[in-house]
Every structure is written in structure tokens, then in C-alpha cells.
Amino acid sequence: MHAETMVEKQQVVNDLAAWLRLQHLPGVGPVAARALLARFGFPPQIFSASFEALREVVSTSVARTIAEPPRRVANSQLELTLQWLQRPGNAVLTLADAAYPPLLLEIADPPLLLYVRGRAALLSRPGIAMIGSRNASAQGMQNAAAFAQSLSAAGLTIISGLALGIDTQAHEGGLRGQGSTVAVIGTGADLVYPKRNLDLAQRIAEQGCVVSEYALGLPAMPSNFPRRNRLISGLARGVLVIEAAALSGSLITARLAGEQGRDVFALPGSIHSTLAKGCHALIKQGAKLVESVEDVLQELQWQGGMDALAITPDAAPQSAVLAALGYDPHDADTLAGRSGMAVGAVMAELLALEMAGLVERLPGGLFQRCK
């Protein structure tokens, strides 16, 4: 029995070595790798195939590369990965694993390997991606946290990218609901970027799931993040954009979501806010305008069996300044003219409202309502 166990363990190591070797082959991306797998079966069969058979699927140069002995990078990655797998909660899912997320199999280029920290089962649960600006407004951050908490309470897993701003608040809200959260990262799964989210990443690994397609030890590089965005949308049934400027990277994820057949949702904002321009553009292009959690749940026809928390503004104190402010940015002089108050009194009221979290101070001496 002991001998059989040792043989089984060695087989697992050999299989992982073959997957890592395939992952690190120069010139072989996810599409070519899938073609090879479709033709030969599993990676060990690819590396034992004849040169002539390989040439029927890939170019001559790639076939030659496959026929070469394993590269040093694949061998070093195997050792690093085996050590990483010794830690509780860590796992590697291959394209052939039954636990591989079924929605990712629908996209054009699913990763060969997924490195997972935490609850891998969340990757196969119904989820919604929430994305937006890294430099979000106070109102945008509040909206992200509140929507994420409510959608998670309704049983949907919140999927985002661990960036600062909207992503951070989406994860925080997701952790407060039963659906929890998944962080799709643009580095190796053994690293955290940005460092400011180190504590958040640890909590997600303990209560939710952190996932990456990138090899262990790979640092943050600009090219990683647009590519990982296809996984954020690919894992989800829909993508909700909270705040996005006209040229925001969030719009790339929204476009990918549309190409993948996912629903795209967007929160509208003030016509004067640069952070609303991207959302308004998406709505013009056919994204669903969202004003409440119920808008998302109804569009997804979600019957999760758990009650969503209603998002309703806290009862704001009666304030002449708030009434004069409305929902667009204004300066103190304008508010004084509208409210009939002295500018000094308006500034004092604005300070109190800001400390209460009801008003946000913007650049240029402007103020905007938060609730």
C-alpha cells in the first residue's frame, strides 16, 4: 500500500512537471497549448509525440522546441511549486482538472494552470465582477462596498482585481457577505501587489480565494494586468463598473466581458464628474444602467435564496447647504448664494458635513454630496 502511495505521488509530480514544462515553452501560448492538448491528450503525451505529429499542429520551430529537453525554468518552477503546495490552502488547477472553473473553459484562451490560495470552489460558484477606478471618489468607494456586500449577501461571489480604490472596496464588501470574494491577481500567487493590500490579500486567502495564472515569483509588470482582466470577466456572469474615467482600464474588462457573452452593468454618475465618463460611455454602448442591487439581480435572473441587503441612503440631516448642493459639485460661493447663508457659515456647515461623511471635498475648492 505504501509503495502504491509513493508511485501515485510520483505520478502527480510527473504530471505537474509536464504541465509546467508546457506552460513555459517559448512560442506556445494558451491557444496553441489547447490545440496540442486536443490533438495528443495530456502534456506527457505531447512531449512523447513524434516530430512529424507535432508539425501537424504547430510550426516547425515550436515542434523543435517541444522536442528539446526540459528547460531550466520549468525545472526550477517545479521545485518552487512543490514547496508552495506544501502550505495549507494552496492548490494548482490544470486545464484537465474537474475543479477547473467551467466558465473559464468558455473563453478563447483559458490558462493552462491556475494557482489558487484559499477556497478554490468559489471559482466555480456564480459570481459578479466589480471593477472601477483606482483613484475613486468617496461616493464611489461607498457604492462599491455597499453593492458588493449586498450582492454577496444574495449569494453571488464578488470577483475583482485587488487594486486600490474600487477593487479594494469590492473585496471588503464581498467578505462581509455569504458569497465571499475572489481576487484575480497580476503577479505570481505567492506575491501581493500592491503592498498596501497585503492584509486584505491574506484575509481573502483565508475567507475567500486568491487566484493567478502567472508562475510563482513573477512580479508585477504592466503587461500582466490587461491580460488578467479577461479572467476577471471570464469567471463572472456579469461585470459591474462602479466608476471609470473615459480611458480607464476598467473599460478593457467591460469590452472583454461583452466579447465573452457576459452582462455588462454600469453605475451612472454626475455629468460633471470625470469618473463617470467611462460608465456613461458604456451605458451609451448598451450596458445596463444600474441604480440598485435589485437591477443587477433581476437582469441576472438570480434566485440565490439569500436576501440582498437594500442599499438606501442614510437619512441625512436637514441642511440648507445639502439642499443647495444637490448632487453636482459646487463651490462655497455658489452654495452661499443658493442658500442665502454667509460664506463663513457655509464653510462651517460644509466642514461638519464632510466630517459626517455626507460631503466630499474635491480639487479646485469644490464640494460634492456623498449620500
Rank of each mutant, 00 (worst) to 15 (best):
E4L: 15
Q11T: 02
Q11G: 14
Q23P: 00
G29Y: 09
A38H: 09
F40H: 10
F40C: 04
P43W: 15
P44A: 09
P44F: 14
A53R: 12
R55V: 00
S59E: 08
R72M: 07
V73F: 04
T81N: 11
Q83R: 15
Q86Y: 03
A96K: 09
D97I: 06
L114I: 07
L114M: 09
Y115S: 03
R117S: 11
A120I: 01
A121C: 04
L123N: 06
R125A: 15
I131T: 12
A136F: 15
A136Y: 13
Q139I: 09
M141F: 06
A144K: 12
A146R: 14
Q149C: 05
S150F: 07
A154F: 12
A154L: 06
L156V: 00
I166E: 10
T168E: 14
Q169Y: 13
L175T: 00
G188A: 11
L191Q: 13
Y193G: 04
L200W: 11
L200Q: 07
A201L: 04
Q207C: 08
Q207G: 01
S212I: 05
Y214M: 06
G217N: 11
L218V: 09
P219L: 07
M221R: 12
P222N: 08
A236T: 01
A236I: 00
G238P: 03
G238C: 04
G238R: 02
G238H: 08
A244E: 10
A246T: 04
G249R: 12
L251C: 10
L251M: 10
I252D: 01
E259S: 06
A266N: 01
K277N: 10
C279M: 03
K284E: 14
E291F: 15
G305R: 10
G305I: 01
M306G: 01
D307L: 13
A310I: 03
Q318D: 04
A320Q: 05
V321E: 02
L322Y: 10
D328V: 06
P329N: 14
D331I: 05
D331E: 11
D333N: 07
D333T: 01
A336S: 13
A336N: 02
R338Y: 10
V346R: 03
V346D: 05
A352M: 08
L353V: 00
M355L: 14
A356G: 07
G357D: 04
